[in-house]
């Protein structure tokens, strides 16, 4: 199986080629949470996550709300 390397929240990650943003969220156990996803500075909305395929060297951020003042 061919793989690609992406950067997820600042860390290198290896994923199967053809993985979508939705696949990544599942792998990260983040699919049941309300998260924001940013790929290469662009927000990927929930409706687009299954069809948005990740490419090698993509910079991906998964963000949540934490406590803050």
């Amino acid at each position: 199986m061919s793989t690609i390397h992406i950067t997820l929240n600042g860390q290198k990650r290896e994923l199967p080629s053809g993985s979508s943003v939705a696949d990544l969220l599942k792998l990260e156990s983040a699919d049941s949470l309300k998260v924001a996803v940013v790929v290469n500075e662009q927000i990927v909305r929930p409706d687009d996550r299954a069809s948005h395929l990740l490419q090698k060297s993509d910079q991906v951020e998964i963000l949540v709300f934490a406590g803050g003042g």
Binding site: N9, G10, E28, S29, A30, L33, K34, V35, A36, E61, I62, L63, V64, F65, A66, G67, G68, G69
Partner: peptide, 29 residues
């Protein structure tokens, strides 16, 4: 109530506040 953006960390997924706060009626983030 105020909240802050943070990178998701699967080891600390329980710290996500969206779920617990959305259970309080009439709350705006």
């Amino acid at each position: 109530v105020t909240v802050a953006l943070r990178r998701f960390n699967r080891e600390q997924a329980e710290d996500d506040l969206f779920g617990p706060l959305s259970e309080i009626e009439g709350l705006t983030l």
